[in-house]
Design a protein around this nucleic acid. Structure first.
Lengths: 153, 153
DNA sequence: GCAAGATAGTTCAACTCTGAACCATCGACG
DNA sequence: CGTCGATGGTTCAGAGTTGAACTATCTTGC
């Protein structure tokens, strides 16, 4: 491999990216936990399911969207079923398949927690930049995510 | 809390940010592990220590930089001492204190692994945008990180 | 100097994640 | 149709993380 090094400015940018990412996740997770006893990972599960018209997603599909391993999702859904935020339902078309389904209680929790979460995103992220800067950042990182998604491992 | 919602464009940008972040970490971690049997977390430890003139950092200081809990860092350093990449040294000024110190073997591993890592950052991140876009992104996220760093919990 | 509280780091038990092994079902091909 | 590789999901054992409790040392203020 011929190394294509990062120059100083690029290296600083990369460090900032890493640092902002980890600190932002950490902060949003703590704030959400403090306010609603809900971790960011569980929050993301609720978001994805709530956006489906039928409030459900196949386990594998959900795992892929969250970029979680299958077994990680199995355990996470187990816990969220225990707490009543989700249920599992058998897939009628494919007897191997399972749906994770968000319950009314899950939807209620999401509705309660969302303002806290959004407010955190505002205060910690978007308030630090102009709207254009934020949309620009989203556009650029959308390309990055898309490329990573398209190249399967 | 008066919710200041994200409009559709902002919401998409936020989703892209989350998605790029998690997928990029996942990919870089896997590539580094595959090539050098080294996780991204351990890599970051090596980077931080190697940048110090005396190749060492106090445990708490290192934990703060990595945004890891103290106990998480204790265990991580334990493992890296086992594998020979780090040693612990007593702090002479403060008998409570411990330094984590990178060994020659650790430096060697870092030197071997760095090209893989940098190449991954290039391919997956910076090749998807112009240099200016990347530096702009770094500048903006630098502000975000700085603000998060300055507000203690 | 010395008590009281703060700080550094480790340890503990509980919880979470990992990747491989596993079982069931599906789909394609002969 | 029946076999065989692929896919969906769970389970298992081992590794990693968490936050609270703990020990030792430091610092402050009297």
């Amino acid at each position: 491999m011929t190394p294509r090094w990062l120059d100083d400015a690029e290296q600083a940018a990369w460090r900032h990216f890493l640092d902002a990412q980890i600190r932002l996740n950490d902060r949003l997770d703590r704030e959400l936990r403090a306010a609603h006893d809900l971790g960011l990972d569980d929050y993301e599960v609720l978001v994805h399911l709530s956006e489906q018209p039928d409030l459900r997603l196949r386990m594998s599909d959900l795992a892929d969207r969250l970029v979680h391993s299958r077994s990680r999702l199995t355990y996470r859904v187990d816990r969220m079923v225990q707490t009543g935020y989700l249920t599992r339902e058998q897939c009628p078309d494919d007897k191997r398949g399972t749906f994770a389904v968000i319950t009314p209680l899950g939807l209620e929790l999401l509705a309660t927690a969302a303002p806290t979460h959004v407010d955190g995103v505002r205060r910690h992220l978007t308030d630090q930049m102009s709207r254009d800067e934020f949309l620009q950042l989203g556009a650029v990182l959308g390309r990055v995510a898309e490329q990573l998604r398209s190249e399967g491992d």
